[in-house]
Amino acid sequence: MTGEQWRVWGARVAVVVAGVVVAVALTKLWSFANADDPDVVEQGAIARTASSACATMREKVAASAVAATQPVGRRVGGINAQNDAVSELIATMQSLGSERLEADQPAAQWVEDWQRLVTARDAYARSLKSGKPKPMELPTIDGKTLVQRLNNVGVNCRVPLLLLAP
């Protein structure tokens, strides 16, 4: 083979290799684009429902706020009313159906995490009512605080600060 033939053969090999590289890259991009991100709610219907229900919950939580200087009975009533507002958010999300929530991985966990917040607040309210208040303890799950898990799923629904300091 002459030098010219080697160059032609080398150019053909380079074109084939480049084509294979491009094909593999496009295949990887396609699979990435169609994969469910386990950390972010991606279904529009779920995100819209969550945003709407969350706005309602925030309004009700703010309307039920009771100062820490109020009598214990009134404070417990405020905590319970705020928990009811969060429970309405949970019920609204569950009305979408477990299949739909499970199909977008963090959605079901997100709803579960709101229930965990209600459980922690309820335990605090009971301890307050008993006259032996204990600090509210929020769980850590998979190395993340409950608030991190609730706030970082790509849904327009941050935990109101009023829920964290009853």
Rank of each mutant, 00 (worst) to 15 (best):
R58G: 01
E102L: 15
R7H: 09
S52H: 08
D84F: 09
L162N: 08
A67Q: 10
S87E: 14
R12E: 09
A11W: 13
A123W: 00
R158I: 06
P38S: 07
V17S: 05
P38C: 05
R7K: 15
L26Y: 05
L117V: 07
G10C: 10
S64N: 11
W114C: 03
V111A: 06
V22G: 02
V76H: 06
D36L: 09
V76A: 11
V15Q: 07
A18C: 14
Q148N: 12
K134H: 06
G77Q: 10
V40D: 03
A55D: 11
G143Q: 09
E112H: 14
A91Y: 08
G154L: 01
P106I: 03
V16D: 01
A45L: 12
A81D: 13
A91C: 04
A103H: 03
R75V: 04
R121K: 12
Q115W: 06
K132E: 12
V72D: 04
N80W: 06
L101T: 04
V24T: 06
V24P: 00
W110H: 03
D113C: 05
V15T: 09
V76I: 08
Q148P: 00
D113L: 04
W114N: 02
Q82R: 15
A55R: 13
V15F: 11
G3D: 13
Q5K: 14
P160V: 10
R158Y: 08
S87T: 15
S130A: 15
V159L: 03
A165L: 11
V61R: 02
D104I: 01
P106K: 03
G73A: 05
A35H: 06
Q5R: 13
Q5T: 11
A18M: 13
G78R: 00
V24A: 08
A47P: 05
I90D: 02
R158A: 13
V41W: 01
Q115Y: 07
P135K: 14
V20S: 00
V76C: 09
S98K: 12
R58P: 05
Q148A: 12
K60C: 00
S130Y: 07
L29V: 15
Q109Y: 12
T56C: 01
P139C: 09
A14P: 04
A45P: 04
A35P: 01
S52M: 09
